[in-house]
Amino acid sequence: MPESKLKLARDICRGKRGQVAQACRTGQEDQLGALGLVLNAAARWTTRYPDTAVAERRREHQALDEDVARLSPLPHAQPAAAFVRAMAARKIAVRLSERSGRRFGVTLTLEFPVLLRLIEEQSTAFRAAVASAPHIGEGRRDWAATVAAGPAPAKFAAEGAPAAPREREALLAWLAESTEQLVDALRKAGPDRGCWTWWGMSQSPRTSGAVARHQLQQMAVHTYEAQITVGVPRPLPDEVALDGVEEFLSTCVATTSAWPHKPAAMDFHASEGRSWRLSLSAGGARTVRLPGPGTTPATAFFSARGTASALALILYNRIPIDSLELDGNRRLFEQLSA
């Protein structure tokens, strides 16, 4: 047991005296068992709940990496938590070519004009489903301001924007205007202009094109949620979902922080004919698109097969993984999602 965990055990047991006071063996076993439960509860707190708090603070742009590094009282006992936090920070120490068509072997699927068109289409679908989430419009306006600002050390907030109205028709118009502002800002900036992004230097570049790609996926997932609310959920459109799987793996999973378990490879196969491999090792997490039919890449430790929509929604934790055809060590996916 690492010294940091032993210290915590001593602090918990008998008022920092580290004593097992029961005289008989049965009593000692009971007391040690209770101590183990408390230690596990403490470890769970220092992994899951602070990570959730950090994610929320990052969305508000109020979390610094040096502060995050000091959160855990058990830094040596939590390699998995460090990996998850590093994924959230997206600290990828590799400079990417802004003009090449590939990012670590991942090919951008959709052209920039197509991304803008699909953002507008998903916005329309969202408004058709439900108009009960004004924060969606506020997010689009902030991203419009961020893209318009160009390269910057922090995200911009839309200034002087009117608050979301309460009346339904006015709210629908406000949501449409929010999307229009985002698309206009993206169109003016073009796909290669740099801007602030929360994912840092991941397999996705820090450009307005990458922002458009991620915003499309955010809008698609929010549209799915809105459709669930009104009882008419629909699969993500094929071209959106295919790009969504790749975008999530290259933006939200990629990291150079060491994978804390044995090296492994996970494959994701879309029934529409596209596949990806996520490699996990001491060098971090990296995604590549697998070759087409007729090739025989090395067997993965775990694979998931289903529609692109199901794959994307599972990665975004919107539907259970049992919706897919699974093969291999399912524990790997659970470790990644922990």
Score class of each variant (00 low, 15 high):
residue 206 R to F: 00
residue 91 K to H: 13
residue 298 A to W: 02
residue 220 A to I: 05
residue 30 D to H: 12
residue 309 S to T: 04
residue 293 P to A: 09
residue 133 A to G: 09
residue 230 V to D: 03
residue 302 F to S: 14
residue 241 A to K: 04
residue 72 S to R: 07
residue 201 M to I: 03
residue 261 H to I: 00
residue 206 R to T: 15
residue 149 A to P: 06
residue 325 E to Q: 13
residue 325 E to F: 03
residue 335 Q to P: 00
residue 263 P to Y: 00
residue 74 L to V: 09
residue 9 A to R: 11
residue 46 T to W: 15
residue 139 G to H: 15
residue 263 P to M: 02
residue 144 A to N: 06
residue 177 E to I: 02
residue 218 Q to E: 15
residue 119 I to R: 07
residue 28 Q to L: 11
residue 230 V to H: 02
residue 220 A to P: 05
residue 64 L to S: 10
residue 73 P to I: 03
residue 79 P to R: 05
residue 245 V to R: 03
residue 224 Y to S: 00
residue 250 S to P: 04
residue 98 E to K: 06
residue 244 G to F: 01
residue 289 R to K: 12
residue 5 K to Y: 13
residue 99 R to V: 12
residue 86 A to D: 14
residue 240 V to L: 01
residue 323 S to M: 03
residue 227 Q to N: 02
residue 168 R to V: 13
residue 53 A to C: 07
residue 331 R to S: 15
residue 280 L to R: 01
residue 285 A to L: 12
residue 44 R to K: 09
residue 203 Q to R: 04
residue 302 F to G: 04
residue 71 L to Q: 07
residue 18 G to D: 01
residue 177 E to T: 11
residue 227 Q to H: 03
residue 104 F to A: 14
residue 236 L to I: 06
residue 175 L to G: 00
residue 233 P to W: 00
residue 156 F to A: 14
residue 10 R to L: 08
residue 109 T to L: 13
residue 145 A to W: 08
residue 314 I to E: 04
residue 166 R to E: 14
residue 61 H to R: 15
residue 221 V to E: 07
residue 88 A to V: 08
residue 33 G to H: 09
residue 196 W to L: 02
residue 2 P to E: 14
residue 296 T to W: 06
residue 41 A to Y: 02
residue 76 H to Q: 14
residue 192 D to L: 14
residue 302 F to P: 01
residue 226 A to V: 02
residue 205 P to G: 08
residue 319 I to D: 02
residue 13 C to A: 15
residue 22 Q to M: 10
residue 81 A to P: 06
residue 65 D to Y: 03
